[in-house]
Design a protein around this nucleic acid. Structure first.
Lengths: 212, 212
DNA sequence: TATTGAAGTAACTAACTGGTTACTTATATC
DNA sequence: GATATAAGTAACCAGTTAGTTACTTCAATA
């Protein structure tokens, strides 16, 4: 006869979520190799044994975190509704969205860097992630085709190359902020610098896409 | 009375170089955290104690490797002689060079990723590296100014943004080859794909720089 | 050729690391 | 309310890890 809203003494789902959140933080701060299982357990406020109970081992936990992170960005992309916009506006919105996403979810970049250091061995096991990327390419293909037909975009742009380029120009900036800031002796994490970079990357993609 | 060319039983400089080369390989394959001091010693064919004798500790050894890697690319850049070329040709050559450099020295990307995961804490201690980047920016500034004056480049491009963009479009491709290859289910390390990317990144930079 | 400092070695250590064992406790369901 | 199963805990373990100790050997030079 316990009240519906009473805090459950045991809440498996909440524990799972806390482990995932703690692992996301720890993995993105220290990388897969640098992250410590004990620290994740401590941050999640659960016994270390629970990580193994819920996720099997460190690598499988990392994969779960990776699936979470990829799921979030591809889900957000789907909600963009670029079909209602002109090709130029749509492309600008996609580039801005991608850039802003890196600002909002800095852990995404760190996780991908870690995964690439390890040859994408976790991701390759995840059918969920591998099936996730059709939609984005579809979005870009549609924008490029409409733009070329209307004569506002060049007609020789490859959708996958464009996708990689859109990701590149923002990703690299944030992935390498520390070395770039040190080298150029200016704080590239400042709002002013980030805003300047944001304007630049939109200029680059739209500038490139102008008809030849 | 030992012959000049007889192999010295002790060759400190050679030992130092072998340690550096082994550390470069190990650090770029496993990252700073994943690299093992014992493995570096083994790969270099020296006693582990020698790493500490020559370089002090693991972090200082990493910094030495970083200085070596940065020195190499900035030195190669200096030999480009872009002044003799037209702005468009010069910029094309710089973009191609940067891209090709990532192909030729894949360890450079791995080392930078590691350094950024650690907040550039080694690099910031290295005056040598921090003083290394004036020349490249000078090169780009000159190309942009000449191009704008001749009316073949837009006049609102910032040299540092352009530098970062030139690096981005190649760096990200190679840094993330494994995840990208998995996601798009095609081997982006193949010669054909690399050549296509190379052509694309030149198109992107030169396309963007066209006058507005 | 005596000396001294750098080059080199083997064995060790204290702290850590991912994962396990052996066990207890809560809860849904029949 | 008995019971099976999932949730949870504390203590432990075998293998690593960066760095050190205590020592020997070589070779330049005074």
């Amino acid at each position: 006869m316990s009240p519906v809203n009473a805090p459950a003494k045991r809440d498996p789902e909440a524990a799972r979520q806390r482990i995932l959140a703690a692992a996301l933080a720890e993995f993105s701060e220290k990388g897969l190799g640098g992250a410590r299982v004990d620290v994740i357990a401590q941050r999640a406020g659960v016994n270390k044994r629970m990580l193994y109970h819920y996720f099997g081992n460190k690598d499988d936990l990392f994969l779960a975190v990776l699936e979470l992170a990829y799921g979030e960005i591809r889900e957000a992309e789907k909600a963009l509704n670029l079909d209602d916009l002109s090709p130029v506006e749509g492309m600008g919105k996609l580039v801005a969205f991608t850039f802003d996403y890196f600002v909002q979810a800095p852990y995404f970049i760190k996780l991908l860097n870690s995964e690439n250091l390890h040859g994408a061995r976790h991701l390759r096991r995840s059918k969920a992630i591998l099936d996730m990327h059709g939609p984005v390419i579809g979005l870009i293909t549609d924008l490029l085709e409409r733009g070329a037909a209307e004569g506002v975009f060049r007609d020789d742009a490859d959708p996958v190359e464009v996708f990689i380029t859109i990701a590149s120009v923002g990703y690299f900036y944030f992935s390498n902020v520390h070395t770039l800031s040190a080298i150029f002796d200016r704080d590239l994490t400042s709002e002013r610098e980030v805003a300047a970079r944001r304007a630049h990357v939109i200029d680059v993609v739209l500038g490139y896409l102008r008809p030849t």
